[in-house]
Computed example of a mutant assay.
Amino acid sequence: MDGGQDVIPGVTNGEPLARLAPHGTHLSVPHGDHLLGNARGDWLFPLADHIARTLTGAAV
């Protein structure tokens, strides 16, 4: 997961890392900052659903 408004120098982009992982996925939050706290409502619930689907194999 990456925030598009992250201005911390040297932060590794999560998208290339996700592509390297066998089952990796990437979530981009275009207006999110470094810790994504400014966009919590946009990513928290979708990420929780994604984790639940990944761990259980069930639709959430």
Rank of each mutant, 00 (worst) to 15 (best):
Asp49Arg: 14
Thr25Asn: 06
Gln5Ser: 12
Ala21Asn: 10
His26Ile: 03
Asn13Lys: 13
Asp42Lys: 04
Asp33Leu: 04
Gly3Cys: 10
Gly32Leu: 03
Ala39Leu: 03
Gly24Cys: 07
Leu27Glu: 02
Ala39Ser: 14
Val7Phe: 06
Asp33Ser: 05
Ala18Lys: 05
Ile8Glu: 13
Leu17Tyr: 05
Asn38His: 02
Leu35Val: 09
Asp49Pro: 00
His34Gly: 00
Arg53Asn: 15
Leu20Ser: 14
Pro46Gln: 05
Glu15Ile: 00
Pro30Phe: 00
Arg40Met: 12
Leu17Cys: 06
Arg40Thr: 11
Leu27Trp: 04
Asp2Thr: 11
Gly4Glu: 08
Gly24Pro: 06
Leu20Asn: 11
Glu15Tyr: 09
Ala52Lys: 07
Leu36Thr: 00
His23Val: 03
Trp43Glu: 02
His23Arg: 15
Ala48Trp: 02
Pro30Lys: 03
His26Leu: 06
Pro30His: 03
Ala48Asp: 08
Trp43Ile: 01
Leu36Lys: 00
Gly24Glu: 08
Gln5Asp: 13
Leu47Cys: 04
Thr54His: 13
Asp2Gln: 07
Gly37Leu: 12
His34Ile: 02
Asp6Met: 08
Asn13Ser: 14
Gly3Asp: 07
Pro16Asp: 15
Pro9Cys: 06
Gly41Trp: 01
Gly41Ile: 03
Val11Asp: 08
His26Gln: 08
His31Asp: 13
His23Thr: 15
Ala39Thr: 15
Val7Gly: 04
Thr56Cys: 10
Thr25His: 07
Thr54Gly: 14
Thr25Ser: 12
Ala18Thr: 11
Val7Arg: 09
Thr56Ile: 10
Gln5Gly: 04
Pro46Ile: 05
Pro16Glu: 15
Val11His: 10
Gly10Cys: 12
Ala18Cys: 12
Phe45Tyr: 09
Pro9Val: 07
Pro9Ala: 08
Leu44Glu: 14
His31Gln: 13
Ile8Arg: 15
Pro16His: 14
Ala48Phe: 03
Ser28Ala: 14
Leu44Ser: 10
Leu47His: 07
Ala18Gly: 09
Asn13Ile: 02
Pro22Gln: 13
Asn38Met: 01
Pro9Ser: 08
Arg19Glu: 13
Asp49Val: 12
Pro46Ala: 05
Trp43Tyr: 11
Asp49Tyr: 01
Leu36Ser: 00
Ser28Ile: 00
Ile51Arg: 01
Ser28Lys: 07
Asp33Glu: 12
His31Val: 04
Gln5Met: 10
